[in-house]
Write a protein that binds this DNA or RNA. Sequence first.
DNA 1: CTCTGGCTGACACGAAGCTGAAGCGGCGGA
DNA 2: TCCGCCGCTTCAGCTTCGTGTCAGCCAGAG
Lengths: 219, 219
Amino acid sequence: MRILLIEDDTVLGAAIRDQIAADGQSVDWVMRLDAAGDAVKSASYDLILLDLMLPDGRGIGFLKGLRARGDVTPVIILTALDQVSDRIEGLNAGADDYLVKPFDLAELSARIGSVARRYSGNPNPIVCHGPLAIDLAARSVHRDGKPVALTAREWALFDAFLARPGQLLSKAQLEEKLYAFDAEVESNTIEVHVSRLRKKLGSAVIETERGMGYRLGRP
Amino acid sequence: MRILLIEDDTVLGAAIRDQIAADGQSVDWVMRLDAAGDAVKSASYDLILLDLMLPDGRGIGFLKGLRARGDVTPVIILTALDQVSDRIEGLNAGADDYLVKPFDLAELSARIGSVARRYSGNPNPIVCHGPLAIDLAARSVHRDGKPVALTAREWALFDAFLARPGQLLSKAQLEEKLYAFDAEVESNTIEVHVSRLRKKLGSAVIETERGMGYRLGRP
DNA sequence: CTCTGGCTGACACGAAGCTGAAGCGGCGGA
DNA sequence: TCCGCCGCTTCAGCTTCGTGTCAGCCAGAG
């Protein structure tokens, strides 16, 4: 397993690197976001350990950029305890886990193992739904064998439906899913995104229950 | 989603319970391991929040017992920061995640959502009533295996009957259920909706008590 | 038979939902 | 640093369909 470590603290970084190496994994250690960007472009990693406070920016942006490009490499965030909002932001930005500094190196190993286990078993399971083939882990959708590009919000919305197939979901519930906690949408955003999803995936995927909400249609 | 909360701290427990309820999930809260054991035996949960330090033992043992019995219900551990070894032990014992106390309630929601997404796919409980199969969570009704589409008002009315099966409900009571106080219906609306429900669900579902009201018929 | 209360088809209104378009902000490339 | 692209939100006008109303019919009770 190849691991990318992004951490600017030389002492902690070295300790982590040694621990991972001792576990028999291969590590690349960079100390800046620009170097991290180069690294993920030039190599493929199975796991990224990401510190949030770095000399050339916050790790959150890096993570968001990664996910925006469709990169689904599992990411574990390394963060200080008092940065609760960072942790939430990180999870919402697509992180898979976080570790609170200071942490025990044995715990790091356990978490790495956990993430590895979660993502092992390639190839990814494909969910089929009528003419759609959905790879949840890779966040990709194919319609009649042709790839469909979904934006972040579209995917989040679709994901909410896939999690509860056939179940009625009110707009309020969907807004919560899409906007987490700081929701301040006072418009018909959900309707608009539903409209776009239907245009991309076919009008039958999402059914309207007037006055109640939406549900994933039968295949 | 049904969640079992095992936590002996009354203040924290109440806060967690309220937060989960606010997220629209259903919570059972127990404060001891023996009660937790009874709970998992008598009901099925989608997620367990497990405090590790409890008056009648350590949560780790409970978790191990659960896994030994083949129970794969996702478990999130609630633990104090300094119990690093506990956290590792917990993860190795089969926990899916942990939260470090003190934690932000918003973070709890995020983690619950994450676990729920990962493990979603267990079917909702189905209520059967003669030829009808009703999924309350999904708000779906099947009649002889075929889906029946109910409108918002129709569902509200049907729901009122389902809440009190066999009990006589006057039109005034039903109007209250459907229109919540600001009602200014001065017509035979209820009769109309009952008629529409009967047409969709079968004429036997709702019985008329002349001069008194309606009741849900025996299956 | 009469009277009262319930049933139901028809219909018009308005709220809820849909969607094209415009404004806006963030990110990446130059 | 500036510019342009792209996705997200908002808005407005249009469409759809759920719902309340009513009228006429039906059925049970006395």
